[in-house]
Write a protein that binds this DNA or RNA. Structure first.
Lengths: 330, 330
DNA sequence: TTGTAAGCGTTATCAG
DNA sequence: CTGATAACGCTTACAA
């Protein structure tokens, strides 16, 4: 690998002169700079990012912590994050925690250890992870929360207004004549989304009955399938259901068909996330669509702003509104 | 951040002694080592990976290049890679190329620049990327190909024997009485998978008719949907189809229903990949299931073996056999 | 405008 | 067994 020393030797100047030239500093003669730059180009010099990092300069590394990657929702987020970070010259180093709290702490520790310039945290279910984030803020490592689960006024975040989305969903179901509206999710997402469901119901003047709520330890389609089987068998069953996310809705649909009911005539379903395949299921899935791309873009921009202007202490709380996409399941 | 210096000061010894103690070297007194270790633990010392990297030691960074992340197939690969790398103490830095050749070259350059210990390349459609890989091998950076598209005897790779999978699929369809078996894929995957389809057909003593083959520029469900619409309308249409991957099959199913045909009585479908939702579609999708977890594990192990034993020059060509999972679409 | 030298946090090579 | 010292590649006061 070609170093500053190599260029210096070739140019017959000192290392520091080369460094100055390549960093476009003012205190250098124009012609020396040009000479050095041409040699650097000729030798195909690339600065050693490791050495630069050790000097306390930026590593151009961003730590990204996500709870999972199996759901298309996070896939979309990661896809956009990677792209937006890359075009801005940053690389991402990603940890998938599988909702494991200790792993999340380890990941944040690792990020600190690798001297990342900033960290993007895409949701954690554990409130006390904020302690760790406070610690990082103390170390002047910018952190931006994506898809924060609750309003955290002291932290920079970009989130989706899921309660708004749920409210749209309930409203839409009411317009279709439903009043017994259930809710199905898995343990991972249930608690937060559940409270949003409750709020959405009351926003629409409906009372939520706890017997219409099913939370399963099984995730994705499996969880939806099992929960729906129970829900459909219960007394005075709901006529419609909102699910924590689309994959769950797919499992619900399977259970509904197996029980011999028609969708949406006998049972209506609304998902959350608008995953790609939602439009191509045998019944197109009505779902709440969050502006994922915009969220990712704003998160990256906010983080980079924080990185490049450390003196800017203003906290940004950004909440984006989802929309409802009506297809054939309602 | 706590450094060796801090520990040395606290312990009243020299930095180098601390370094020795923490690296479990032999030339140190047992009691000094214990003392230093306890101080290190107390101060929660973590070695500065950047400094270690600068010393020519490993960066514990692995570059991962994937073409896309929207398909559940690559998601699974990434998920496993991240996990296996993490438990072995490595972090991954990932670039998603979207099948963009220049981006792939840039990514490999970036990886080199970041002094990664090794690189995992999950398939590129462009053969001449091997030039770049040769270059990296010249720099003694181990590279392992995942899901190589063709047999490349000079490169370490772990791949799925897709031709075998296709052959299983054709065989299964023949057993169901099908002889007019079509093939649908998108432009990204068509060419390679197409040749496998041809081989699989002849393996089973069938001749492939080019009019039964549809390749669409649209990807995922959309591509399958559009292709199937055409295929179903053509003269003397196939009675069954194999798709490049499962998402395409989902789109195909939609088109079949819209055309008023029954699955599998009027039209049978086999996918590829066995994505999670395949089992929960309104008709469970028969599909070829690649051993993704095993592939990821072997790739990581192979790469780490190459990293830790640079003198080992043996090329590993590993080919794993997929199996067929029969559900309701056949 | 340029060179010198110190330092970032480690590890490695010598002496002692 | 331990301490001093150089080195990794780069940046940056400070001197010249």
């Amino acid at each position: 690998l070609v170093t500053l020393k190599d260029i210096a030797k070739r140019a017959g100047v000192n290392i520091s002169t080369v460094s100055r030239a390549l960093n476009h500093r003012s205190d250098i003669a124009e012609e020396t700079r040009e000479m050095i730059e041409s040699i650097a180009k000729e030798l195909n010099y690339k600065p050693n990012l490791t050495a630069q990092a050790l000097m306390g300069k930026s590593t151009k590394l961003i730590g990204v912590l996500v709870p999972e990657i199996e759901s298309n929702y996070f896939v979309k987020i990661i896809n956009y994050l990677e792209e937006f970070l890359r075009v801005q010259g940053y690389s991402m180093i990603m940890t998938i925690s599988n909702f494991n709290y200790n792993l999340e702490l380890e990941a944040l520790e690792l990020f600190e250890n690798r001297n990342v310039d900033g960290i993007l945290v895409a949701c954690s279910l554990y409130d006390d992870i904020t302690k760790r984030i406070d610690y990082l803020k103390g170390k002047h490592i910018p952190v931006v929360l994506i898809e924060a689960l609750t309003h955290l006024p002291d932290y920079d975040y970009v989130m989706i207004d899921d309660t708004h989305g749920m409210t749209l969903a309930v409203k839409h179901l009411m317009e279709q004549g439903h009043t017994r509206i259930g809710f199905i999710s898995d343990n991972m997402n249930a608690d937060i989304r559940y409270s949003m469901y409750l709020k959405a119901m009351s926003n629409n003047g409906l009372k939520a009955d706890s017997k219409y709520v099913y939370k399963k330890p099984e995730r994705f389609e499996e969880g939806g399938y099992l929960a729906a089987k129970e829900m459909l068998a219960c007394e005075d069953r709901p006529t419609a259901v909102i699910t924590g996310y689309d994959s769950i809705a797919i499992g619900v649909m399977k259970a509904v068909w197996e029980a011999g009911y028609r969708i949406p005539e006998d049972f209506a379903i609304i998902g959350n996330d608008n995953i790609r395949e939602a439009a191509y299921l045998s019944k197109g899935l009505t779902t709440v669509s969050p502006p994922v791309q915009e969220m990712a873009k704003m998160a990256v921009n906010l983080l980079i702003e924080k990185i490049e202007n450390p003196e800017n202490k203003v906290i940004h709380n950004i909440k984006l509104k989802p929309e409802i996409i009506i297809r054939e399941t309602t």
